[in-house]
């Protein structure tokens, strides 16, 4: 499999009152063509900022200070705004957690999808609208013609997320970035959307970068997975490998602390300590204060993400040195 997207040493910082937050602090990640890669982390780990950095959709106070994002042979970071706009929504699409805020309330969903198509393809509005109806049918919306004429507020949450997916896929992007796409949805609706994403992936052949906090969703959807903590990737492996033998203490703690269906535990495992203040991340390994192992060197040097066991299992922890 060839690499579709390659993130190299990405640093994204936010200038805020009180200092600089290194939201993304040296992330390396490769997304092969047609693969589904999971990016897991808790709030504030930098997983969403990584996605927004790829799309170059950062807020005004955020800046990519270092690194490259190679998409095929082009570095998205240095690209002129116009060329980036051309890639956005065309070659790389994104869907968000809350579909209501991502849709414009004053246009029908059909018109919005048609516009998204027309931004990147030279077709007239009718052709765009036809494409929109076609897409709505593909994402499993019954009576797509009627639905295309409806406004976002007339649709349920699950339906809106289907519309977002339809819009994102309407240009057949090579990469779909999905930022917590099912977090706002109920379990039975989540199941529908996940199933839809799996099916559409087969149909469109897009690679997916799935950002989530839910390890269950990762296990179900992803080929490989990267775990983020305090702006860095601490572990990366194929999904089966990561769940079968997690190597980073954070990953281990995370996997142990979730309640498992049908396996009631006497007491849930707990990760001690607290997430570092984003303005005062400790030197060395950011996880050290909460780490049960506290390997030597971790108080001074940041552990690099290195192969451990196999070439595909990467861990950033000094204990394996």
């Amino acid at each position: 499999m060839s690499d579709l997207l390659r993130i190299e040493d990405l640093h994204t910082q936010f200038h805020v009152h009180g200092g600089t937050v290194k939201a993304v602090d040296g992330v390396n990640l490769t997304i092969p063509a047609r693969a589904t890669v999971g990016l897991v982390g808790e709030s504030g780990s930098g997983k969403s900022i990584t996605a927004l950095s790829i799309m170059r959709l950062l807020e005004k106070n955020g800046r990519i200070t270092q690194g490259h994002v190679w998409f095929h042979d082009r570095d998205l970071i240095g690209l002129p705004d116009e060329e980036m706009q051309d890639i956005r929504g065309n070659d790389i699409s994104m869907i968000f957690q809350e579909p209501m805020t991502a849709l414009n309330p004053v246009f029908t969903v059909g018109d919005q999808i048609a516009e998204a198509v027309r931004l990147h393809q030279k077709v007239d509005h009718q052709a765009g609208l036809n494409r929109a109806i076609e897409m709505l049918r593909l994402v499993g919306i019954s009576d797509p013609k009627r639905r295309a004429g409806q406004y976002p507020h007339e649709l349920s949450g699950g339906m809106r997320q289907r519309v977002m997916i339809a819009m994102a896929l309407s240009t057949s992007p090579e990469l779909l970035i999905a930022d917590e796409p099912t977090t706002a949805l109920d379990v039975t609706i989540q199941a529908q959307i996940l199933k839809l994403m799996r099916n559409l992936k087969g149909e469109f052949g897009s690679a997916i970068l799935l950002i989530t906090h839910d390890l269950g969703v990762v296990a179900e959807m992803c080929d490989s997975v990267a775990v983020m903590y305090a702006g860095r990737i601490v572990e990366q492996a194929t999904t089966e490998e990561l769940f079968a033998s997690p190597k980073h203490p954070y990953t281990q703690g995370l996997l142990a602390s979730i309640p498992r269906l049908g396996k009631k535990q006497e007491r849930l495992h707990v990760i001690t300590g607290s997430v570092p203040n984003p303005l005062a991340v400790p030197p060395g390994c950011a996880f050290r204060p909460r780490c049960p192992i506290k390997a030597p060197r971790s108080d001074r040097d940041i552990p690099p993400l290195t192969a451990n066991g196999s070439a595909e299992h990467l861990v950033a922890c000094w204990q394996y040195e």
């Binding site: 937050v21 709030s43 997430v275 203040n277 984003p278």
Partner: peptide
Amino acid sequence: TTVDQERAI
């Protein structure tokens, strides 16, 4: 651990 890290940022 904090859930408002995103806000903190």
